[in-house]
């Protein structure tokens, strides 16, 4: 599903340039539940941005769903993001003047789905994250956990190939963290590839594979034996 070969990325910092990713190799198969662990500055956010087509790499290859990503212009990137990727952010990034339902249906709007169809699908996904009753509420009327569930519904609504979650639990307390992680697990169990970035061990441990990043290189890549929670 995602294949990265010898990926390099550096940012210019004045005269110097900051080498953030130093030749990453990573292959994620369809249906995997992967977490990228690393402290801040390890390059994990940069990796997510490149995988999420929000940024471009300098060197190496990135293959998404069999398609080599190169010469990406903004328009092409927008279409690919809409089609292949679903985003979940730490700060939810819901549009605050739109209701939960409108937020969820927005990717469908950009995919060119008709209005009624859009609302129907969006409602299905809201119900899936158990927020059907909150469809007409604004984000400001929802709790943090509810907001993140709306964001997850939004990420799923276009039936993407990969869900990219950037510190999805970073702004949540431990109870809601668990409920959000449970939701991500459910999604993964239904066959969705889920790609989580986190610096919390407890979160990473709930995924099926942990890739540890340090100073722009992968230092470990191991499968996790799923512990059944007490």
């Amino acid at each position: 599903m995602i294949e990265i070969k010898n990926l390099h990325k550096s940012y210019p910092m004045g005269k110097e340039s900051l080498h953030v990713l130093k030749g990453l190799n990573l292959k994620i198969e369809e249906g995997e539940f992967v977490s990228i662990m690393g402290s801040s500055g390890s390059g994990k956010s940069t990796l997510l941005n490149i995988v999420g087509l929000l940024d471009v790499h300098d060197e190496g290859e990135y293959i998404l769903d069999g398609e080599l990503i190169e010469n990406l212009n903004e328009k092409k990137a927008a279409v690919l993001r809409n089609k292949f990727l679903g985003f979940v952010f730490q700060s939810f990034n819901l549009i605050n003047y739109k209701t939960a339902l409108e937020n969820v249906s927005m990717p469908l709007y950009y995919a060119g789905v008709g209005r009624k169809e859009r609302q129907k699908i969006a409602m299905e996904y809201l119900e899936k994250v158990e927020l059907g009753a909150w469809a007409n509420h604004l984000p400001s009327e929802l709790s943090g956990g509810q907001k993140q569930r709306v964001a997850i519904a939004r990420a799923l609504v276009t039936k993407p190939k990969v869900v990219l979650a950037d510190e999805p639990t970073g702004a949540l307390d431990s109870t809601t963290t668990d409920s959000v992680m449970d939701l991500l697990k459910d999604i993964n169990n239904e066959g969705m590839t889920v790609f989580v970035i986190t610096h919390e061990e407890e979160v990473a441990e709930q995924t099926k594979r942990i890739v540890r990043l340090k100073d722009g290189v992968i230092i470990s890549d191991e499968k996790v034996n799923q512990k059944v929670k007490a």
């Binding site: 999420g52 929000l54 903004e74 328009k75 927008a78 279409v79 993001r81 809409n82 089609k83 985003f87 990034n93 819901l94 549009i95 927005m106 990717p107 950009y110 995919a111 939004r154 276009t158």
Partner: peptide, 11 residues
């Protein structure tokens, strides 16, 4: 930015 991430084209 959110809209762009969700697939809004620049146009």
């Amino acid at each position: 930015g959110i809209r762009r991430a969700l697939g809004a084209k620049p146009s």
